[in-house]
Amino acid sequence: MGGFPVLHTSDYSIETAYKVVYDIYSSVILRDTVQRYKIRDVKLLERIVKYAFDNIGNTFSGKNVADYFKSQQRKIDLNTVYNYLNALEGAFILYRASRYDIKGKEILKTQEKFYLSDGGLLYATMGYRDRMISGILENIVFLELKRRGYTVFVGKFLDKEIDFIAEKKGQKIYVQVAYKLESEQTIEREFSSLLAIQDQFPKYVVTLDDFWKEDVEGVQHVHLSDFLLQSF
């Protein structure tokens, strides 16, 4: 149901909870975003919101959004896309995670990720979709890292992708998030990205595996619930 406090003050059904969240979403869109940023095309804003929600956990840029709308026979200016995404950040509906090149030690200006301020927003507006489980798990980990005071980036190291690089007071942790490690290919993909980074900062692969919890060469494999509760 998400973390909006009102949902946990009473024994709401799922349907009622989603209605409450949808009403919150609607009022935030209308009041905090449309009015504050003087947005004229509310329907376009809502379509951009749904595009972002549908791509939680995927890297994309303003150009991706513009190209998508072009494929839908709707031309949209690139600056408008960025202005609307900035407005959604300003209303705390979305958080942006910039992409960081570990080898080049620079923040990249493209292929960032956006995450929801509350997972309940996705379910209330678009319903539950099994195919989005990996993105939702990333979203949970992202919010936990933010809650603990980390500055969070998505990472690039050579040709490999790292879900999260989290920094705080000169310390770092690296995190890969996956639903389950169900094949050798998945294990290789998730662990190899972290094993390629030659420093001494903690590295985690976070999944929902109940039985397989083996660490690999110092990279810790932990269940999501354990990761959320442990100190680091």
Results as ranks from 00 to 15, higher is better:
Gly57Gln: 04
Asn58Ser: 15
Ala52Arg: 00
Ile48Thr: 01
Thr59Pro: 12
Ile39Ser: 02
Phe53Cys: 03
Ile39Lys: 03
Thr59Ile: 12
Val28Pro: 03
Arg47Gln: 14
Val28Gln: 05
Tyr51Ile: 06
Tyr51Asn: 04
Phe53Met: 15
Arg36Leu: 10
Leu30Ser: 15
Asp32Glu: 14
Glu46Ala: 04
Val34Trp: 06
Arg47Thr: 01
Arg36Tyr: 09
Lys50Asn: 14
Val28Ile: 15
Asp41Ile: 08
Lys50Glu: 14
Val49Asp: 00
Leu30Thr: 14
Val42Phe: 11
Asn58Glu: 14
Asn55Gly: 10
Asp32Gln: 09
Arg36Asp: 07
Ala52Phe: 05
Asp54Trp: 05
Asn58Gln: 12
Arg36Pro: 00
Asp54Ala: 12
Ile29Tyr: 00
Gln35His: 14
Tyr37Gln: 13
Tyr51Trp: 08
Arg47Phe: 05
Arg31Gly: 10
Arg47Asp: 15
Lys43Asn: 15
Arg36Ile: 10
Asn55Gln: 09
Tyr37Gly: 01
Lys38Tyr: 05
Val42Tyr: 07
Arg31Cys: 12
Tyr51Ser: 09
Lys38Pro: 01
Ile56Glu: 00
Tyr37Lys: 08
Thr33Ala: 13
Arg40Pro: 01
Arg31Asn: 12
Tyr37Ala: 08
Tyr51Glu: 09
Leu44Ile: 09
Arg40Ser: 12
Asn58Ala: 13
Asp32Val: 06
Tyr37Phe: 11
Val28Asn: 06
Asp54Cys: 02
Lys50Gly: 03
Leu44Tyr: 07
Ser27Asp: 13
Ala52Lys: 04
Ala52Thr: 08
Leu30Trp: 10
Gly57Val: 09
Asn58Tyr: 11
Ala52Gly: 00
Val28Leu: 07
Val28Asp: 08
Arg36Gln: 12
Arg31Pro: 11
Ile48Gly: 03
Ser27Arg: 13
Val49Gly: 01
Val34Thr: 11
Val49Leu: 11
Tyr37Ser: 06
Ile39Arg: 02
Val34Leu: 06
Asp32Ile: 08
Ile48Val: 13
Leu45Gln: 00
Ile56Arg: 06
Ile39Tyr: 01
Thr33Asp: 08
Asp41Glu: 13
Phe53Ser: 03
Arg47Ile: 01
Glu46Asp: 11
Phe53Lys: 03
Ala52His: 05
Asn55Glu: 07
Leu45Ile: 07
Asp32Phe: 09
Phe53Tyr: 14
Gln35Pro: 02
Phe53Pro: 02
Val42Pro: 03
Arg40Cys: 03
Val42Lys: 13
Asp54Phe: 03
Leu44Gly: 04
Arg31Ala: 10
Arg40Lys: 13
Asn55Ile: 10
Ser27Glu: 09
Asn55Thr: 06
Asp41Asn: 15
Ile29Asn: 02
Ile39Asn: 07
Gly57His: 08
Thr33His: 05
Leu44Val: 12
Asp41Met: 04
Ser27Gly: 01
Val28Met: 05
Thr33Gly: 08
Tyr51Arg: 06
Ile39Gly: 04
Leu30Val: 13
